[in-house]
C-alpha cells in the first residue's frame, strides 16, 4: 500500500494504491492525518481507483477521517470507487455520511 497526495486551493487529494487492510491502516492513519494537519484542507478527496482490496478496517479508516474533518467543518469525498471496495462500503452504510463522486 502506498499513497500519493496533491493539494490545491484548500482541496487535498489522497490517491491510494494497493490493499487497505488492518496491517496497512497501522501506518496509513498517521500518514493521512499528518497531511491533513499540514495542509488544513476544507475538502479531502480519497481517490480509490487503484485500491485492490478493502475490508472493515479500511472502513474504520474512512469513518475516522470523516469524523475528524466533520468536526472541523471539512468535507470528505470518495472518488473512483472500484467494485470490491464499493460492495464493502455499501454493506457497511458508509455512503449515508460520506459522498461518492466520479
Amino acid at each position: 500500500m502506498s499513497i500519493e497526495s496533491r493539494s490545491e486551493r484548500g482541496k487535498l487529494t489522497v490517491a491510494f494504491c494497493g490493499d487497505i487492510d488492518e496491517f496497512a491502516c497501522r501506518t496509513l492513519r498517521g500518514e493521512i492525518d499528518a497531511l491533513i494537519l499540514e495542509k488544513s484542507p476544507s475538502e479531502v478527496v480519497f481517490d480509490l481507483k487503484n485500491v485492490t482490496f478493502v475490508d472493515s478496517t479500511g472502513l474504520g479508516l474512512i469513518l475516522g477521517r470523516y469524523k475528524k474533518l466533520n468536526a472541523s467543518g471539512g468535507v470528505l469525498r470518495l472518488k473512483d470507487v472500484p467494485p470490491q471496495v464499493d460492495k464493502v462500503l455499501r454493506a457497511s452504510g458508509v455512503y449515508s455520511v460520506v459522498e461518492k463522486v466520479k
Binding site: R29, D55, S56, L59, G60, L63, G64, A91, S92
Partner: peptide
C-alpha cells in the same frame, strides 16, 4: 479508540 468499525462479522454475513 482504535477506530475499529465493529463491522467485521456483518461484512462476513453479507459476503
Amino acid at each position: 479508540d482504535d477506530e475499529r468499525s465493529g463491522m467485521g462479522f456483518t461484512v462476513i454475513e453479507t459476503f
